[in-house]
Amino acid sequence: MEFKEVQKFNQWWLWLLLAIIGLLPIAGIYIQLIKGEEFGSKPMSDTGLIIFSIFIFLLIGLFLVLRLKTNIDRAGIKMQYVPFVKKNVSWNDVESVEVLDYGFVGGWGIRLWTVYGTVYNVKGSKGVAIKLTNGKKFLIGTQKATELEEVLRKIRQN
C-alpha cells in the first residue's frame, strides 16, 4: 500500500508565457549587444540588460526543476517541493487527513496562511488536507485524488 506522485508545471499556457518572456532578453542582447543599437525607446544599460537576462533565465530554469513529490505509505507522509521544502510526517503525528476539493487558493506553488495552512500545489484544485497533532495544517495538491483516497482508506483499515 503506497501512493506515489510526482507533479511538475507542464501547463502549455505557462510554457508559452515563459517562452515569450524568454524571448525578450534574447532580442535585447541581440539588438543592443550584438548589433549595437538601442533596444526600445528607453533602453537599459548593457549591465542592466545582462542582469535582467540572467534573472529571466534563472526563473525559467526554476520552472524546469520544480517538482512536487508525494509518497504516502504505512510509515507516514513524505512530501518534497523541489527545491524548496521537504516534509516527513509519521502517522503518529497526524490528527486527521482528508482528500478534498480545496478550490482556488490564490494560485499555484506554495501558498501560505490559507484556511488549510500552507498549500503545496502545481495545478488543479484537489489535494490531501493534513492536520497534525500539534495543530499545524498543510495541504498537498494531487492529480490522482481517487487513487489517493483508496490508499488512505486501506492504510486506515490496518
Rank of each mutant, 00 (worst) to 15 (best):
V99N: 03
G48M: 12
M1F: 11
S41A: 15
L148Q: 00
M1K: 11
R111D: 02
I60W: 04
G61Y: 02
P25W: 01
K42C: 14
G124C: 02
T70G: 03
A19T: 08
R153G: 13
G107F: 07
S96N: 13
F57A: 14
V89S: 08
I155C: 02
V99Q: 03
G127Q: 05
F39W: 13
G141E: 01
F57R: 14
K86T: 12
N92Y: 11
W108Y: 04
F55D: 05
I56K: 01
K137H: 10
V82P: 00
F57V: 10
V6S: 09
W91P: 04
K126G: 06
W91E: 09
A19P: 00
V82F: 15
R67S: 14
K87A: 11
M79V: 01
V119D: 02
E38G: 07
F104T: 07
D73C: 02
I26Y: 06
T133G: 11
T142F: 05
I54K: 07
L58M: 08
L59K: 00
R111L: 03
E149K: 10
Y116D: 05
G124S: 00
T70Q: 03
I110R: 02
S45N: 14
W12K: 12
S96L: 08
E2A: 07
A19Y: 08
G107Q: 10
